[in-house]
Design a protein around this nucleic acid. Structure first.
Lengths: 208, 208
DNA sequence: TTTCATAAAAAGCGATCACTCGCTATCTTG
DNA sequence: CAAGATAGCGAGTGATCGCTTTTTATGAAA
């Protein structure tokens, strides 16, 4: 009869299905959005039954919270390299902005945004996501401080980071086409150039 | 018997219920979000039956498209006064940014954002909202050009407007508490001050 | 092997969704 | 007034939602 192809421990089986569920949840949130990411859709994508889902996660919200934490981790990893560029001239700042844009518009960051938007109209979800949110903010700030701390005045780094990230988030939310990550578009590109020039003007040719 | 309190023409009755439905839709979208704005919820709020709703709007999406057009009109009206301030010094720019922030975070603008987000995962809705979207963008740009055109270089106005509006939109989308329109919060305030200083530095003390 | 606990599957439940349909109420027209 | 058209109501429909329950497979312990 159908011989079991592999032999796995219970812990391995458990971790495999949990991992598949988290991955399917993150991918579906980014691709299809919060509303279309039903438990049935997640299970179909993960190749798992609904019974299996609710064995490991008490509610749909529990699964989303776990997926949010995982997505935030992935986002921090992605962002680590984006801050690397030099920020002393226009070319360097422009390049750094471009990489930051790519990170903010990436699929896992889209997952994160999708959950934040859903949390806006769901007090429970909002409360449940709060720790992951604080942690994520701190990690991003730490990354920015590590890379920019010796060029920019430290007390202005949070404000500058908030400014830059929120511009990209705004574009991502209001993207006129389904996949926002492609080309910047003329107005968007002009805005990025303008921002780069203003940043360089403030932090290099002025006295410090 | 319950005497009819008033005598209205059919057109008046029709316009009254359509108006009530649009207003209820806009308010519910801003307050409770897209998912919670069911046809039943809209009708309850408007004091009208579901049968009445589907007499005037073929689908829920049709109603949303009509509500989007109305919300965009209201947004343009609100924005008209926000661009009025002087933009020649830091105080003027800061004030203008503050007013723009209030407009972007207002309830009807929240309605608009809610529909844009829903459109991200709904190709049909996205296509249906496209004309209203183009129109809205053009109107905002016209407002900004009218008010800033003689102080700022015209070719940079679209970029600057996109930059400013999208920062506020980003904050609105990711607001950590339900009503985003209240106080700016320290980091957000610092970012606004920073932006105001950078704008003034670029457009006043440089050569032009 | 036998016994037990855990993992996964499958069917089903009540609630809610957008939407329809048959009917009544109100206004218009001749 | 009578006849027809439009507006509004509310019960009903099938589909889908998150979730539960029952049943079956599978690995661990004896």
């Amino acid at each position: 009869m159908p011989a079991p192809a592999t032999r796995r421990t219970q812990a391995e089986r458990r971790d495999a299905t949990i991992g598949a569920l988290l991955e399917a949840t993150i991918a579906s949130l980014a691709e299809r959005g919060y509303a279309a990411t039903s438990t049935a859709a997640i299970c179909a994508r993960a190749g798992v039954s609904q019974g299996a889902l609710f064995r490991h996660f008490k509610t749909r919200q529990d699964l989303f919270v776990a997926a949010a934490a995982r997505a935030a981790e992935l986002n921090v990893e992605q962002a680590r390299s984006a801050f690397a560029g030099d920020v002393r001239d226009v070319a360097g700042v422009t390049a750094t902005l471009g990489e930051l844009r790519a990170v903010v518009l990436s699929p896992t960051n889209q997952t994160w945004r999708e959950l934040l938007v859903a949390a806006r109209s769901d007090a429970e979800l909002r409360a449940a996501l709060r720790p992951a949110r604080l942690e994520f903010g701190l990690q991003m700030l730490a990354l920015a401080t590590d890379q920019w701390g010796d060029v920019l005045p430290p007390e202005e780094i949070p404000a500058l980071l908030s400014l830059v990230v929120n511009v990209f988030d705004g574009w991502a939310f209001a993207a006129p086409d389904a996949d926002a990550a492609s080309a910047p578009g003329p107005t968007q590109q002009a805005a990025m150039d303008l921002l780069a020039q203003m940043i360089v003007a403030r932090y290099t040719q002025e006295s410090r």
